[in-house]
Write a protein that binds this DNA or RNA. Structure first.
Lengths: 217, 217
DNA sequence: TAGATTGTTAATCGATTAACAATC
DNA sequence: TAGATTGTTAATCGATTAACAATC
């Protein structure tokens, strides 16, 4: 029987690796693999066996000496650690190109979330159907929040409105942001969960890598 | 005069922080700030002054004792390090919801890239206008690549086609991937630049954080 | 039992922070 | 010149890797 929650504080480096484990384990299961040793998994993921064992042992002894790890068990365990079995009530703010694509593209339930409302300030977009939901005007957000108590806000608005909006959303009870804007929410709201998807930063890393690899050729 | 390229190998931790510096410096400039000390900047960015000085000194002495850093100079320096002045030729593969949104939403030139072609395998999408470009059929990609030599591929295809596609693209000369699929390109193509935008991973981090913060309340 | 492989402790490595002399 | 603040070296901290005894 695995002893859960061994360490009281898990380092951020470990946590950030969990979704990747979860993905690889899922893929292996789909291929019909039943068990795997830390060494074999390490090889597949380009990690060290040591790191895998250390990482997993932060949460409990999921393996068995001489056998390795049972993948089904492991997937369940990591899934429950990541909270994918939950359903955080989530709203999308900003139904532009990107917002719509996110709403339509993501299978929220697979990641422990549930999209329950979409808001925009543009009158033209109100009433549009996006991912099975009607876009609502932002002016109705406050009462919607009071009634439905969403915890997560997806921010897909222009940078100029992001700061003021984030302030209001926190006031209205939002506990976490999935932030697609350039605005750095963490700086002003220290006690709120923020996951930044700075697409521009990510793209710049590519131009950095390319401009510096050319030098070596 | 700043002495460029001081360290021969820059650690990844430093590089990943550069885009954030670049954003903050840009914002400060827009506010009319001319110079800043490492201490003040650290405060604004929730970092330590030490770290900022260490980071910047990997690339050269951009500051001046007793004065601090000139923001305009610094922005130019970091921009040129990041390669935003270049224009990596970029193609988008997959003109679904997400692909279209990325093409329309990103100002590629701001990040040192240039979108020169969009491909899809769905006959229905061919000819559609996305971000000023006509969607082309993937069957024409090879000759397009030979002629135009794109370096970067944005991958917005279903996971099932990602692996085979990545293999072909590498064969056709793609040097970097901006990867929006679940497939881990790095594992099979070690010498290619890969920047992953695993939106699912990012969303899971939110459900993790929320499910664990509730325990503390 | 013998072999395999974990869980865990100890050693190493790298990144961050602190301190301070150099200097604008 | 005196004050401010950098660039840089040294100290600390944390994360990764190696090693091995425990055990299935």
């Amino acid at each position: 029987m695995p002893k859960e929650t061994k360490k009281s504080v898990i380092s951020n480096s470990v946590i950030k690796r969990l979704p990747r484990y979860y993905r690889f384990i899922g893929a292996l299961l789909r291929q019909g693999v039943v068990r795997i040793s830390s060494e074999k998994l390490a090889e597949k993921m380009s990690l060290t066996a040591s790191q895998i064992r250390q990482d997993l042992n932060c949460f409990g002894g999921f393996g068995q000496q001489g056998y390795g790890y049972n993948l089904e068990e492991l997937k369940k365990a990591i899934g429950s650690i990541l909270g994918v079995t939950g359903h955080c009530k989530t709203v999308l703010i900003g139904a532009g190109n990107l917002g719509k694509a996110i709403a339509a593209h993501m299978d929220f339930s697979e990641y422990g979330c549930e999209l329950i409302g979409i808001f925009d300030s543009d009158e033209e977009k109100i009433g549009e159907n996006v991912a099975g939901l009607e876009v609502m005007h932002i002016s109705g957000a406050k009462s919607f929040f009071e009634k439905n108590k969403p915890q997560v806000a997806i921010l897909c608005v222009p940078e100029t409105s992001a700061q003021a909006l984030a302030d209001r959303l926190v006031l209205w009870g939002i506990q976490a942001f999935w932030n697609f804007t350039h605005y750095d929410i963490t700086v002003s709201h220290k006690n709120v969960v923020v996951e930044n998807v700075h697409l521009g930063d990510s793209l710049m890393m590519i131009s950095y890598a390319l401009s510096h690899s050319e030098e070596n050729e």
